[in-house]
Nucleic acid binder design. Structure first.
Lengths: 197, 197
DNA sequence: TGACAAAGTGACCGATCGTGCTCTTTTTAC
DNA sequence: GTAAAAAGAGCACGATCGGTCACTTTGTCA
């Protein structure tokens, strides 16, 4: 059963790669099987259906996101230091780790936001968890802590700049996208931390 | 030939509607034909191929965007008044006119940003034109005019808030998304207009 | 080492995909 | 009003889709 787990992981990774490019619906099982050196029917020893694979892809991508973005930040002090690492890693996640396709979470969000069902529910739940984590860091930006509303406003703008960076970089071909995003985020941290209690 | 143009327009509108939901690749000609009350082969009297229809969809969506967002703003004075209308109409475009599916331009951007070809080139060109238009308005925010770099930073953040609003509203179910976006944009206009020359 | 389960193959199914063909109906222009 | 042209229907095509089944190979554990 050890062998099977490794193969399953390879399938999920390849499916995630292709989903970031063509969308979950656009991924054909034949292409995934080919890419990992398996027959199409071999895939079905690891997943009951295509939707079952979709769920595994979403879980896997969100897990990898946590590893790549949150884990390096966790070592830093709460508040600004941590938020700076999160932002930098978040940009890096989309720009480097998924350079060919763009951030798969954004692709999944746009694809699933109007497709009710367990897949959307799963993504929603994982994204809400992430949002709560970041909002908590925003509260710690100031002493006394920011209000919940103030922290949520910070998260809204932070995520906006992440999305804006991806759009500018990938669709508009803006070579300065990273600088623009970093500058906007720095200014956001400055004025948020300085807000009167 | 009048009749044909009307039918063609109906096909494009329906294809755009479905593309906003499932992506351009996910739109099947049979579904579009059904929805407009045509046979599948009847579609091919109006388009040479599916990709030909894709091009028409992109052109049409961008034209409609201009009508819905830029045209109402054009009547206002350049600078802040115009930018405020643009932002308000831009939010409204995604939230109301495409309530079921989300803004088709965002869906197209995410789908096409990693798919080189004439379709991506077309969308890129149209979006660059729009960007130039908005940047020009940002320059007029202050007297003396903002520098090109300052105005571009303004556009980057404005578009970020639009994207953030869509994500918050559609994927995260945030009922306050519009307020968050409007507040962030207002503050952006304030501090941009106040910047020292 | 032998037995049993897990992993993987190949052929095949019905459905649907985009598209070409021929033919009929409708619209347009003189 | 009539003829040419445009619009559309119906059918069939090869390819590909997700998925099943019977079978063989490989890995694991006692």
């Amino acid at each position: 059963m050890r062998k099977g787990e490794a193969t399953r992981a390879r399938i999920i990774a390849e499916a995630a790669r292709q989903a970031a490019l063509r969308g979950l619906t656009g991924v054909s099982l034949a292409d995934v099987a080919d890419a990992v050196g398996l027959s199409k029917s071999g895939l079905f020893k690891h997943f009951e259906s295509k939707e079952d694979m979709h769920i595994a892809v979403v879980e896997s991508v969100m897990d990898r996101f946590g590893e790549a973005v949150w884990k390096p930040a966790e070592a830093r002090a709460p508040g600004r230091a941590r938020l700076e690492v999160v932002f930098e890693r978040w940009l890096h996640w989309g720009e480097t780790e998924w350079a060919d396709s763009g951030c798969p979470i954004m692709a999944l969000s746009v694809e699933l936001d109007d497709q009710p069902g367990p897949l959307r529910d799963l993504l929603h739940k994982r994204l809400q968890g992430w949002r709560k984590t970041v909002v908590r860091e925003f509260r710690a930006l100031r002493d006394p802590p920011l209000s919940e509303a103030e922290a949520q406003a910070g998260y809204f703008q932070m995520k906006s700049f992440i999305l804006g960076h991806s759009d500018a970089r990938r669709m508009m071909g803006d070579a300065d996208a990273q600088r623009s995003a970093a500058a906007a985020f720095d200014a956001l941290l400055d004025r948020t931390a300085r807000m009167a209690a």
